[in-house]
Each structure stands twice: as structure tokens, then as C-alpha cells.
Write a protein that binds this DNA or RNA. Sequence first.
DNA 1: TCATTTACCTACAGTCTGTCCGTAACTTAC
DNA 2: GTAAGTTACGGACAGACTGTAGGTAAATGA
Lengths: 199, 199
Amino acid sequence: MTRRKQADRSAATRSGLVAAGRRLFAEHGFAGVGTEAIVAEAAVSRGALYHHFADKTELFAGVLEAVEADVAEEIAAQALAGDDPAFAAVMMRAVEAWLDACEAPEVQRILLTDGPSVLGWARWREICQPYVLSLIETAVVQGIASGEVADLPARPLAHALIAVADEAAMYVVSADDREAARKDMTVIFERTLRALAAG
Amino acid sequence: MTRRKQADRSAATRSGLVAAGRRLFAEHGFAGVGTEAIVAEAAVSRGALYHHFADKTELFAGVLEAVEADVAEEIAAQALAGDDPAFAAVMMRAVEAWLDACEAPEVQRILLTDGPSVLGWARWREICQPYVLSLIETAVVQGIASGEVADLPARPLAHALIAVADEAAMYVVSADDREAARKDMTVIFERTLRALAAG
DNA sequence: TCATTTACCTACAGTCTGTCCGTAACTTAC
DNA sequence: GTAAGTTACGGACAGACTGTAGGTAAATGA
């Protein structure tokens, strides 16, 4: 308890920097915003930034994780909220929640487009793994165990599902007629899920 | 014909810059290589670069298109090469060719990870659209027409298929056991295709 | 209270991008 | 063939941005 004040100060500036980076990266992209702008938004100096993070890329990693955590929480809540506990129903609720989340520019820019490029695909997935990826993988494993889903390799399957969901999101948000695009993609996703039914 | 010499000179330096950028971007990524290094590799001056391209990003767009063109050509050749002309068979050959192509770092780095981030998702797809995307979409449309494929929206479906293929590629190349990963992903893809069968 | 660690600030050096202006090569008009 | 005009390219410069080094203030432990 004796270390409280120091630790609090640290945590406050750190999370302030993450919050600032989150706002700015979402709007201008990683390369489009300088460290000066970030520290100005967070009302600290560049020194504070480089004290808490090795470099700008590491700050971005922190921001990515924060965004991913929020999105995963929202998806999990929505997916488990409905009445129908069947695998396909849960997944459809999850994908709807995901498409909703992707309306936010910060998700598109930070999570989908900049993430893999700035951090590299492997590190990007590594950060997202504990969140959405494992969420889906768990659902898949349960589905296989309950006999609802065909006995396929679970992790690759989870990757494939997420890939379709990611692409669907980008397709929808950059479509002229987003309403129609979302309907189309929902149909595709539903069909994909049905394909995985056991038998 | 009188304009030959000027035009040739232009084309030569332009394609030289694209080739140099292709090599260097593939190895170090867009942000990891400076214009100085590119012009040195191409044996021209920075002035030449900025004469032919508005900025570094536009050079990257040129590089991306070159890579995409090569990959599309290879995929088309492989897909149409086999005996079985059935939709699923063609698509499986296409995805095998794609996974082969993704062994090359330039495809992973330029096409998959840097592309969307540097150019933005919409522009990235816009450049790839005339190549692989329309290739797949055409196959899908034909499949629907011949009754092999369920009557789903063709373009979104093509997007979904490409998304799975892209993810499969990244999953395979960054897996510890690439052999096993590729087998797993092939199974997933096959199953996905079967899901699209009409009926 | 005093030494030590932690948190933070400021100034600086190095690098990179895009632009400006000049020059050379080439093309067209006469 | 030559003068005028256009296109291709070169080199220097300004501006911006990143990461670092060295110093100060606050907090902690003895």
C-alpha cells in the first residue's frame, strides 16, 4: 500500500497516453499522427511517453489491446444475451455485434487496417488472441463437443470465421449501400455457419 | 513513332523504380525503406522518383499492382490447368496456387499486410479488384449460372472466399508446423466450398 | 533525514519526406 | 537545321518527426 501514490500517478499518465493515442490513431492512422500531438492531447511531455513505452509502436500496441478488449467484451455480452443457446444462433449474434462495433472508425482503422501492418500479422493476432479469437475458438470447441458442429480443426476454423467477419465488416462500411451490403454479408455468414453443421 | 525515345526512357526508369521498390518493400516493409534506398537500388535520383510518382505512397501503389498482377496470372493459370472443370475443383486449385504464392515474402508483406494500411482498405481492394477479386467473382457467377453454386450475392461471396484464403495464407506462413496448418486450412476451405453447393 | 529509486521534462542529433529550381534530353514548328 | 517548347531528371533545401541523453522533482526506504 505504501507504493500507492507513485503507482497511481504512473497508471494515470499511462492510461492517459493510451486514451489519447486511441483517439488520434483512430482518426488519422498510425503514420498520420506524431508523438507531439499525442502528448499534447494527453497533456504530458514526450519524455513521459518514452518513459512508459519503448517507442511509438509499443504505444500503439497498448492502444490496440485496449480497443480489442472493449470490442471483445461487447461481443461476448451480445452473443450470450439472447434466448437461443444454439451454436449458430450465438455466432450470428456475435457477428451482428461485431458489425455494429465496426461502425466505429477506431475499430476499422486501429484493429483492422493498421494493426497488422504496424505490428506485423503475428504480433497483431497474438494481441487479439486472448480476446475475440479465443472467444470464438471456445464456442467452436463447445459446438463440436455438443455435436452441433462438424469435427474440424477448431483453431483454423475460428480463424476462418473471424476472417469472414473481418472482411464482412470492411465490405459493409465501405459499401455505397451499407444496408444492403450488411444483409448480403449476413446471408453469406449464415450459409457458412450452416456448412459447419455436423453430418 | 517519333515519340519513341522519350517514352522508352520514361518507361524504363518508371519500371526500374517499381522493381526496386518491390524488392525493398518486400524485405523491409513500406515504412522500413527510405526513398534514398529505392533510388539507389534503381540507380536514379530522387528527382526521377518524384517526377514519375506523386509521392512514396503512389510508388507503393504501383508496386502493389505489379505484384497483384503476377499473382493473379499465376492463380488463373493453375486454376484452369487441371482436368476437372467443376467449380469446387477449380476453386481448390486456385487456393492451392494462392497458398503457394504466399510463400513469397513480397506477397505477404506488400499484398496482405502493408497494402490495406498504406493505401487504405478501399483503395487496396480497388487495385486488386480487376485481378484476383474479379477472377473469383467470375467463377462464382458461372457456378451459380451452371447450378453448381447456391444463388447467393456473388460479389460478397467472392469477398468472403478471398478473406478465408487470405487468412489461411497468413495462418499457414506464420504457423510452427506449416505442413499441418496447410492441411487444416485446406480442409476448412473445402468444407466452406461444399457449403455453397446449390440445394 | 538522507540516499535511492521512480517519474518526468527539455534540448538535441539524426533521418526522412516532399518541394523548388536548374539543367539536359528530346520533340515539334518553321 | 535551328529555335522554341516540352519532358525527364538532378541536387540542394526546408520542414517534420523520432528516439535519446542528461537533468530535475517527487516519492520511497532506511
